[in-house]
Amino acid sequence: MNIKLPKTTGILTILSRKPSIKADQIMKVMPEEIRATVALYMEGKIQQWFMQADGSGVIFILNCKDVEEARDIIEDLPFSKESLVEEQFIPIGPLLPLGLLLGDKRPE
């Protein structure tokens, strides 16, 4: 059986405060970080954004074709420049089992 992987349509990006970083270090850079992320949202680079329920960081769904593009965007943000956060990048795409409903006649 030949399984076709889904096309990457975005990058799930998780930014978490490093354990060694104190809240006051985050708050010092927060205004600059907020301005930068709002600008990315207005440019259409951030599709969705969420806060982690435990308050440890944020989750972005970025409109990017690959992890390298997402990494370039995130590493230009103040929190990343100041090495305040750990970064995770997960390529995401359409849910493959839904293709069964189409008889596997998916657009290329």
Rank of each mutant, 00 (worst) to 15 (best):
K28Q: 14
C64S: 09
L77C: 00
G99I: 03
L101W: 08
D54T: 11
S83L: 06
I21H: 11
Q52G: 02
T13N: 05
G44C: 15
P91W: 05
I46A: 00
L5H: 13
V85F: 03
T37W: 00
R106Q: 14
L77S: 00
L98C: 13
I73K: 00
T37C: 06
I74T: 02
P19L: 07
N2M: 13
I21W: 13
L102D: 13
L62N: 03
K18T: 00
G103C: 09
I74F: 00
I61Y: 07
L77D: 01
L15V: 07
P6M: 03
K65Q: 12
L62E: 00
F50N: 15
E108I: 09
Q88A: 10
E68S: 08
K22I: 04
F89L: 02
C64L: 03
P94L: 11
E75D: 07
F79D: 00
P97Y: 04
Q48A: 09
P6W: 04
D72C: 07
E82M: 05
L98Y: 12
R17K: 15
R35L: 06
L84G: 01
N63T: 07
T9R: 07
D104P: 06
P97N: 10
A39Q: 15
S80M: 02
I14A: 00
Q88S: 11
D72T: 12
S80F: 01
L98T: 14
Q88C: 06
K65C: 06
I73P: 00
G99A: 11
P78I: 02
S80A: 10
Q88N: 12
L40E: 12
K22Q: 14
E82V: 02
L5P: 08
S56Q: 13
A39Y: 10
L5Y: 14
M27H: 15
S16I: 09
M27T: 12
I46H: 01
I92Q: 10
Q48L: 11
E82T: 03
L100G: 12
I11E: 01
D104G: 11
L98A: 12
A53G: 12
R106K: 13
P91C: 06
R106T: 15
I61Q: 11
A39F: 10
L77A: 00
E82R: 09
L77M: 06
I46E: 00
P107T: 13
F79K: 00
G10W: 10
I90N: 08
L98G: 12
N63L: 05
E108Q: 14
A70F: 03
M27V: 09
E82Y: 04
A70M: 05
E43W: 05
L5C: 08
E75I: 04
F60L: 06
E86K: 03
E82H: 08
E69L: 03
M30C: 05
L15A: 08
E108P: 03
S20E: 15
E33S: 10
L102Q: 13
